[in-house]
Design a protein around this nucleic acid. Structure first.
Lengths: 288, 288
DNA sequence: ATGCCTTACGTTATACGTAATTATT
DNA sequence: AATAATTACGTATAACGTAAGGCAT
């Protein structure tokens, strides 16, 4: 049977114009290419080239063959791409989340438990999480409320408590037991842009506060280090931030408003029950 | 690059169910098939089968791959078929004719002059010849009248004279110089069915004559031999019939009506000028 | 004189079959 | 026991590269 590389060689000759050039492109010697094409012609029992002593040109049959070969090579590429992409998708757990904090908890666990699988996570608006889970865009979603749908399992996963971080010299630094969002009226704060659900839950209730937005992770960290402005953090980000206290030399004050404490839920399709992570304590940090 | 035989092996495994059976079908040993599939998986960097110790079953990726492979193998078959058919069509001279006689003259000449090419001839109604030539269904047509169309060359080719053949004992056998169609009124004749244009030119003018039809060439010849009934022949059929006189022991009497003499024309597209045969004498058999 | 295609020849590498191994029904 | 898949090993086929030849620009 004719083989793909012969088809590839055929279209390469068509593109290159001569056997010699084509042979370079397909990385074989030119005599080898001659033979390969001769073999193809013999297999099909047709003549694909007009042969002068010194030159070969595609004849009509050859032109037709090239047309077909191009299409088939295209299809083969499509096939291999599709197969590889599909295989990868089977080895990938796609996570949609409404916040960054829970991912800090979730990703290390999944990485360990599902060695060999790829993890992708993205933060998206809360409304698109459940539809994405149902359609299969996500195999696991993190929401700030329980969800309910057929064949969907939903479990509480962890909670997150918002903190304000300030340099020790900052006036608010004295409120050791915690502060309220209202205390920040008139203040100017640093704010990381990709905060998901927190924007709706908290920021929208702080019309009196000025925010300096930063959408890049590293740049935000750097800003926090060098500036004296208050910024948000959470028990989760602090927990996963290596030597945070030493590096930043800041104090972390809990936000006492109820909106500043969120319980997150993990949901999966029943067929992906094993993806569900272990449940964390929902009320760390000494909250009631 | 993955090769066709690997795709073929893949779908064969899918069809056969086990490697062992599939190996028989594709005519290699079963270990060889194992390796071939392993190589395919390595090339694509995917897993196509769930492997138990004693059994392999297609996984989801494998099923997808089989789907694609089937389609591509189908396309490859289509391709080779199309290429071979096209190549053959380039090596084929298709001839459409309104009568059988001229083909007796034409085919030997073309066979000799175009060695290596396939000749196909068919008798069709006169109206469809020129359209067929223009469309390319025929590369050469034989008509009983000159034709004219753009890029079409038309040349007189040969003439055909109708004869009546009768056993020596037949009453009409005395009309040595020839007979007229009217002389056949009331007679019963043998008639070969595939006579093309002659049906319209001659038979339709003989309402008083009874015809015994026969559509098979050999059966007709046999009938002529064993019966005493008159039959038509022509200078061309007589010329190309080996030892006709001895075999049939019949006399051939020319038909004197003008309709019984036809001049045939060969037409080709200008690009196929070389297909035109040499012109025969248009008035053989001592006719004016 | 250089570029291009084909044929010839010796070699290498790939793919094969046989045999052995392990596991399942 | 029989069937099925994988691994190991020696072999053979077929694909390659180098070299040589012929022809055209």
């Amino acid at each position: 049977m004719a083989e793909f590389n012969q088809l590839y060689q055929l279209v390469t000759i068509a593109d290159a114009g001569t056997l010699s050039k084509a042979a370079e492109i397909v990385h074989i010697s030119q005599p080898a290419l001659t033979r390969s094409i001769q073999k193809l012609e013999a297999e099909w029992n047709v003549t694909l080239f007009d042969r002068q002593k010194n030159k070969i040109t595609l004849n009509q049959t050859g032109e037709l063959a090239v047309q077909y070969a191009r299409r088939i090579l295209d299809d083969v590429n499509t096939m291999t791409g599709a197969i590889q992409a599909y295989e990868r998708s089977l080895r990938t757990i796609s996570i949609g989340s409404c916040a960054a904090g829970p991912l800090l908890e979730l990703l290390p666990e999944l990485t360990e438990r599902f060695y060999g699988m790829a993890l992708t996570s993205e933060m998206v608006s809360a409304e698109s999480l459940l539809p994405g889970l149902v359609k299969g865009t996500y195999q696991l979603i993190i929401t700030d409320a329980e969800v309910s749908a057929p064949d969907i399992l939903c479990h509480p996963f962890c909670s997150e408590q918002l903190y304000l971080t300030v340099p020790p010299a900052h006036p608010l630094a004295n409120s050791k037991e915690g502060i309220y969002l209202d205390d920040l009226a008139g203040e100017t704060m640093l704010l990381f842009q990709e905060i998901g659900i927190w924007k709706e839950r908290v920021i929208s209730k702080m019309p009196q506060t000025n925010f300096i937005l930063q959408d890049q992770d590293e740049a935000f960290s750097a800003l926090v280090q060098v500036s004296a402005l208050p910024a948000f953090a959470s028990d989760l980000t602090l927990k996963h931030s290596e030597r945070w206290a030493e590096r930043t030399n800041r104090l972390a004050l809990p936000i006492l408003d109820p909106e500043a404490h969120v319980t997150f839920y993990c949901s999966v399709q029943k067929s992906h029950k094993t993806y569900l992570p272990g449940q964390r304590s929902l009320y760390p940090s000494g909250h009631s």
